[in-house]
């Protein structure tokens, strides 16, 4: 194979891998924005929290409770971290965000931004800002897979496929099930859905928890690839917000497709003209905002 094509393809795979994380994160943001009308600035911090919970579970938790031999492995972390992050989100929603319902978007944005800063500051106090590696890739996911044009780390392939599966299940649940119909209806007219006898406040809380859990899940999966750092959330969230703006605020499919697509483009640009790689997303955002202000998948 032509080496140029080979390098484009391999960067495209790595880009797609990043894109899967963008998709998971922007999906959570889209779900939350749809129902709560809140731009969840804490999303990056929940992503970081998910990664730290996995790291702490693996290396520290056992010691804290006096059982140094206890170590919570990757698979358990994949289940427990999102649950804990979701639960934390639920507490934030019930104690703080709920009080802002009906006020201007700006208040929710400011509050969640504050939550993000508090979390970031908290972990920054105890952990290395430059990042701590997560040494817990399970043996079954170590090594590489030969894709023909490149050797791709098995773990990255797993993260890509697993993220895609989670995105698909979420999309299906929202667009094709009874509960999803309730969610979509509540997004359109929450007061009326409540007048039908649906406990909408509970639905709102659970949706926020679910969106945060998705961020936590992305965090756990990112931990072995990027190192775990208090700043990892604020680094990725900027790109994720661009993804959401390009895809269209609140659009589920838009979040998934745009996340993957932009990751891919980022990867390919890395080969074609490396200095532009981190810029290209924002250039696309500017163009989309000029041509289609409501986003590629947003309703006009």
């Amino acid at each position: 194979m032509d080496p140029f094509i080979k390098s484009v393809l391999s960067q495209a795979m790595l880009g797609l891998n990043n894109g899967a994380f963008y998709a998971l994160l922007s999906l959570g943001l889209a779900v939350i924005f749809g129902l709560l009308n809140i731009v969840n600035f804490a999303h990056g911090a929940f992503y970081m929290l998910g990664a730290f919970l996995a790291l702490i579970g693996l290396t520290q938790f056992g010691g804290w409770i006096g059982m140094p031999e206890l170590s919570i492995g990757f698979w358990w972390a994949l289940l427990l971290s999102p649950l804990l992050v979701g639960l934390f989100g639920i507490v934030i929603e019930r104690t703080m965000l709920k009080r802002l319902a009906g006020l201007d978007h700006l208040y929710g944005l400011l509050l969640t931004f504050g939550v993000a800063l508090v979390l970031q500051g908290f972990f920054g106090n105890f952990y290395n800002m430059a990042g701590t590696p997560y040494p817990g890739i399970p043996p079954s996911l170590r090594g590489v897979v030969d894709l023909g044009f490149m050797y791709f780390p098995k773990y990255r392939l797993f993260a890509l496929l697993f993220s895609l599966a989670v995105c698909f299940v979420t999309w299906y649940a929202i667009e094709r099930t009874k509960l999803g119909a309730l969610l979509r209806a509540s997004t359109e007219n929450p007061k009326l859905v409540e007048a039908f006898g649906v406990n909408v406040p509970l639905l709102v809380t659970l949706t926020y928890g679910f969106g945060c859990a998705l961020a936590g899940l992305a965090g756990v999966m990112a931990a072995p690839i990027y190192s775990v750092s208090p700043l990892m959330g604020s680094e990725i969230i900027i790109v994720v917000f661009a993804v959401v703006v390009i895809g269209g605020m609140g659009s589920i499919l838009g979040a998934i497709v745009t996340g993957l697509g932009l990751g891919l483009i980022e990867g390919v640009v890395k080969v074609l003209y490396p200095p532009a790689a981190s810029l290209v997303v924002f250039v696309i955002m500017a163009i989309v905002l000029m041509v289609r202000p409501s986003g590629l998948f947003g309703r006009e």
Binding site: A185, K191, F196, N199, V200
Partner: peptide
């Protein structure tokens, strides 16, 4: 009572603007 609990007693409401969900 909150709205959803009132509805559950057995009230059906048809709003003036009809409230048909466009996405459904």
């Amino acid at each position: 009572l909150p709205t959803y609990q009132i509805a559950r007693i057995g009230v059906g409401y048809c709003p003036e603007e009809r409230g048909i969900f466009a996405s459904l």
